[in-house]
């Protein structure tokens, strides 16, 4: 990340419009919704001069700071870790802070809308409560019996590797809100909750696996998964979500037979 600044220093004597030369004009087509003004949502276009190597989030910042301060969206760290800014960009769930404008065809308008399946509160902000309720339901914390050890709970590198993939989840809801079963049935736990259950079910230090499997064995649990792979495609962290769900299914079956 430090090299571009060095390159710019070499070109420093050039006038200011040298930097403007590599900006392009991009149209952001954003789905706006404000319940305090109208019951209907609508698409609004914003023209921006922006460096294509910038991210969609930078474009949204530009709009909010320079064009329309009423644009509402969530973001905290802006670097792909906090998981606040999952949104539907050009029809796919992505993190606005990890999507470069040059990667999503800036010649056409870039559509930005709220993630689906959750209640839109304003513009790009959705009510995340059902999502976190499902997360709480799978008990995403270490469950053990007996006395607490005086030192850390050790496990082998292989045991850690078993659930490594699902520890990467940042709870951005990109997977759950890309799931067609979740769109139709808000009671389905959704991929994110199952991923976080997987993280503990396959942890050798945890003893609550049986309870979690029992929860996910229910009507609204893993058996509603249609293996559409939308969640795997949507995950900004590259977690193999559908594989994790299938592993939970397999654990449920091998538990019985």
């Amino acid at each position: 990340m430090s090299t571009p600044t060095l390159e710019k220093q070499d070109q420093a004597p050039e006038p200011a419009d040298a930097t403007a030369a590599h900006t392009i004009t991009v149209t952001f087509r954003i789905r706006r919704f404000n319940p305090e003004v109208a019951a209907e949502s609508y698409w609004e276009d914003f023209q921006l001069d922006i460096d294509p190597k910038e991210r969609v989030l930078d474009g949204l910042h530009k709009i909010k700071w320079d064009h329309d301060g009423t644009l509402t969206f969530r973001r905290s760290c802006a670097h792909g870790i906090c998981g606040s800014d999952a949104m539907r960009i050009n029809g796919r769930n992505r993190l606005a802070c990890k999507t470069l404008i040059k990667d999503i065809n800036p010649e056409k308008p870039i559509t930005v809308e709220a993630i689906k399946g959750l209640t839109v509160l304003k513009d790009l902000v959705v009510d995340m409560d059902p999502f976190f309720q499902a997360y709480r339901d799978v008990m995403p914390f270490l469950i053990t019996t007996g006395n607490e050890p005086t030192r850390e709970r050790l496990q082998t590198a292989e045991d850690r590797e078993r659930f490594d993939d699902t520890t990467k989840c940042i709870l951005c809801a990109a997977c759950t809100s890309s799931c067609p079963v979740f769109w139709n049935d808000g009671q389905y736990f959704g991929p994110a909750a199952i991923v976080n259950a997987h993280r503990f079910i396959f942890d050798s230090r945890d003893e609550g696996g049986e309870q979690r499997l029992e929860i996910l064995n229910d009507r609204d649990g893993v058996w509603r998964c249609r293996t559409t792979f939308n969640c795997t495609d949507a995950c900004p962290r590259g977690i193999e979500v559908t594989k994790a769900i299938q592993e939970v299914k397999r654990a449920l079956i091998t538990r019985r037979f």
Partner: peptide, 10 residues
């Protein structure tokens, strides 16, 4: 305005 609730919320 009323917001659109998620289908079959708990």
């Amino acid at each position: 305005a009323p917001v659109i609730e998620a289908p079959r919320a708990r």
